[in-house]
């Protein structure tokens, strides 16, 4: 049994959809409220480690997709969670994986996703005088001086 099959088995209870976009990768779509449970299952089985959290903004569909990448050797497992673009919010997984704190803070600052229960929600890496409520990685964020003139 490969690591990905094992992961699929672990997550079977919560998976809404399972895809294999490339060799060695597995995408599992889960509901936002199932995130902590799914992460706990992976952590209890010692399946890999959290490699990062990616946010994807899709204004057309009115969603912000949050991707939790777990890596084990050559394999990459991605938990995909779709959130509404209006007031997006998700539970923190820091109680399971403390190292997720930084990734969650990045997500909060860059996409305006409220991470509920994250241990340290303070201002992250943007400058001290950054305007509240402006999220640079959202698609509707306009750079003051665009590169292409």
């Amino acid at each position: 049994m490969t690591a990905l099959e094992q992961a699929q088995g672990l997550l079977a209870a919560w998976a809404q959809e399972t895809r294999t976009p490339e060799a060695g990768r597995l995408d599992v779509v889960i509901a936002p409220e199932k995130l902590v449970a799914a992460t706990t299952a992976l952590f209890d089985a010692r399946w890999g480690y959290l490699a990062g959290i990616t946010g994807l903004d899709a204004p057309k569909s009115g969603q912000i997709e949050v991707l939790y990448h777990f890596c084990a050797g050559a394999y990459v497992l991605t938990l995909r969670i779709a959130l509404a673009r209006e007031k997006p919010s998700i539970a923190s997984i820091c109680s399971v994986i403390p190292a997720a704190s930084m990734f969650e803070r990045e997500l909060a600052e860059m996409f305006g996703v409220a991470v509920v229960g994250t241990p340290d929600p303070s201002r992250l890496f943007l400058p001290d005088d950054w305007q509240d409520g402006v999220y640079p990685l959202r698609k509707d964020f306009a750079e003051e001086a665009s590169h292409a003139e």
Binding site: P21, E22, R25, A51, G52, T54, L56, L67, H69, C71, V76, T78
Partner: peptide
Amino acid sequence: EGETVSRVEAPRGELFYFIK
């Protein structure tokens, strides 16, 4: 169109790229 994950070993450790 598509998404990919690209991981390489930098001198300091694993470097993780997600490209869409």
